[in-house]
């Protein structure tokens, strides 16, 4: 029997001097797609950085199948697409993927095969040996998505993955993310509520560092976008 995957987020907080960016967030995630919504400054990116091991929580615990976020084994199972990531302008797309594959500990031969597959998946196969500095914003974003998938991650953290993609590409990536949710834990944050409505199995909503909603969003609960916008309005009135 295959052991079920579990990402444990237990009372995780991040405090910067007097400001609490993430406030005692506790949640347990299993296989599936989780949509993370929240206004700017709600703490989404901070939470995602902590889940990616690049920002240490002030308190609390994060573990994937019992492996702590600080361990190499955790990062080996992680795929991460930051909101605003950099690239090496002089590298070719293939070099970029092979470099990041090496960082993820993937053997060279396997990395080459996987990089080719992923370049095809994100429709960049013709650009494999072109320098990244010649890429458009959307192409860079697609390359970013490809790098996040290099190690067939058990946990995929996507911060605004569809930003910069044209509508056709966005629809393609929704489908891709949906498929990935069958075998992995996918957590994606976005401002585009329709993205989440279409693909997320569960919705997480953050406000002022706290998780204010977690669960499936069913039609009988009303329109998700309306609910989401209401949170903004409440913020404005406060």
């Amino acid at each position: 029997m295959v052991k079920s995957m579990k990402l444990m987020i237990d009372r995780v907080s991040k405090q910067y001097q007097s400001r609490i960016a993430v406030d005692r967030v506790s949640v347990e995630l299993h296989k599936g797609v989780y949509g993370l919504l929240g206004a700017n400054g709600a703490g989404k990116t901070t939470l995602m950085r902590m889940l990616s091991g690049i920002l240490k929580p002030t308190s609390g615990m994060i573990a994937l199948d019992g492996v702590d976020v600080s361990e190499e084994a955790y990062r080996a199972a992680l795929g991460y697409l930051p909101q605003d990531f950099g690239y090496y302008p002089e590298f070719h797309a293939m070099d970029f993927l092979l470099y990041l594959a090496a960082l993820k500990g993937i053997p060279k031969a396997q990395a080459k095969r996987r990089a080719k597959e992923l370049l095809e998946l994100v429709s960049l196969q013709d650009m494999a040996h072109k320098k990244i500095k010649t890429f458009s914003g959307g192409m860079k974003q697609r390359l970013g998505i490809a790098q996040a998938l290099l190690n067939d991650p058990k946990l995929l953290v996507l911060d605004e993955p569809t930003a910069g993609l044209d509508p056709k590409e966005r629809v393609r990536f929704r489908k891709l993310i949906e498929d990935l949710g069958h075998d992995s834990i996918v957590l994606l944050s976005t401002h585009i509520v329709s993205d989440i409505e279409h693909i997320a199995d569960e919705v997480l909503i953050m406000k002022e560092g706290q998780l204010i909603y977690q669960g499936k969003w069913e039609d009988e609960k009303g329109d998700l976008e309306e609910f989401y916008l209401k949170q903004f309005e409440e913020d404005a009135h406060e």
């Binding site: 990616s52 690049i54 190499e72 950099g86 990041l100 090496a102």
Partner: peptide
């Protein structure tokens, strides 16, 4: 900002 990709990698 490539540090995010590097530091989140296993190595």
């Amino acid at each position: 900002r490539t540090d995010q990709l590097i530091l989140s990698g296993a190595k």
